[in-house]
Design a protein around this nucleic acid. Structure first.
Lengths: 192, 192
DNA sequence: AGGCTCATGTAACCGGTTACATGATTAT
DNA sequence: ATAATCATGTAACCGGTTACATGAGCCT
């Protein structure tokens, strides 16, 4: 139930259309919450029915008509309740990547080293993409109070640190695997 | 589609019942893949219908009858295909916690510091729980070939490093927030 | 008597994904 | 011409959750 709260969060800054929200998700929270426009439109309807947001239909000439959504007092209440809720949900995490690692003993060491190297490359790419985040934050900062953007930076920093951690971890794994492969090789040599 | 592959993964070690699998999930991959027994039973039926696993009904006297599942060649093939698939799915991550942080500018600095301190406590607890993982691994290691458990250790190490990273990050956030609060305070003093 | 372990499931629901569908204006 | 931007949706599906349901044997 987090897309709904993300929408409420953005609408707590300012009124937006589904199209605006799609762009907002894509340019700011995308690296930890990927949302499709179709899903956003579905959710907007549900939130309106629940009375958490209200809708104003705006007729335009040069462009297609649009629906401008605003958060209601009930919506704001729900949003703040969600923010305040102590996590405790971390015991339900799902991480498919770790699952794959867990069962990788079914493949050869060489294959797994190659996979981990691929993972490092992906992390490196991600790190580069993350470099554009500060710009994006600066761009949006003018629209809201200064203190808001501090928290945006926190999430960006989290993403950055996580990536570094992933790279370090993968390198340590590769080192260990190479060690094992080396031992296996020398064993073979001596038994020959 | 990862519970299915987790089940296939475990069955690639040895044949198991739904009950065995529930315990296996709970004692090893739980920290990155929490699975309920009801879900496991549902999935087992689906996997059997697809021909990825086979079932042997075992009649017992002292205990309830049980269904012992084994992986089929088709299942093994599907499993290896899944393992080999290059991630690329990381662009769809969902992290509700980061979402909450992102929108925390709507609350007071004091509230947010308290929340981050709570988060650190949760991490600390998690770290302690993680300490039992090596034992758990040692317990299962005897059942499978030695190389398998290396990958189990990799996931445990990942969990450990991630926790450390989270704690460091949260501490940095708290420091930054305290700094901001301090500045706000002195500003108030001088404007009086 | 009461709780734990063994053992397996069903039904309703929810959050999210995929694929499909439309259509005008504006910039290259 | 054609691609991009603006703008909004529907339908079928899938993976997972919650709550509920049953029942025998064993240990204290």
């Amino acid at each position: 139930m987090s897309l709904a709260h993300g929408i409420l969060g953005f609408l707590s800054y300012t009124s937006m259309t589904g199209y605006d929200l799609t762009k907002a998700f894509d340019s700011s929270v995308r690296f930890f919450w990927y949302a499709q426009s179709s899903h956003i439109y579905l959710k907007l309807n549900k939130l309106e029915k629940k009375g958490l947001i209200s809708c104003e239909y705006i007729i335009q000439q040069a462009r297609p008509n649009k629906k401008l959504y605003s958060i209601t007092p009930a919506g704001k209440e729900e949003f703040l309740k969600w923010i305040a809720q102590e996590s405790a949900d971390d015991y339900k995490t799902k991480d498919e990547f770790l699952m794959r690692i867990f069962f990788s003993g079914n493949r050869t060491i060489t294959e797994n080293i190659r996979m981990l190297e691929g993972f490092i490359k992906d992390c490196e790419k991600f790190k580069e993409r993350m470099n554009t985040v500060p710009e994006s934050i600066a761009h949006y900062r003018e629209a809201v109070s200064d203190i808001q953007s501090v928290y945006w930076e926190f999430t960006a920093d989290f993403g950055y640190r996580r990536t570094i951690m992933c790279i370090d971890w993968a390198k340590a794994c590769i080192k260990r695997l190479k060690n094992i492969a080396e031992k296996e090789k020398t064993n073979e040599d001596t038994t020959d």
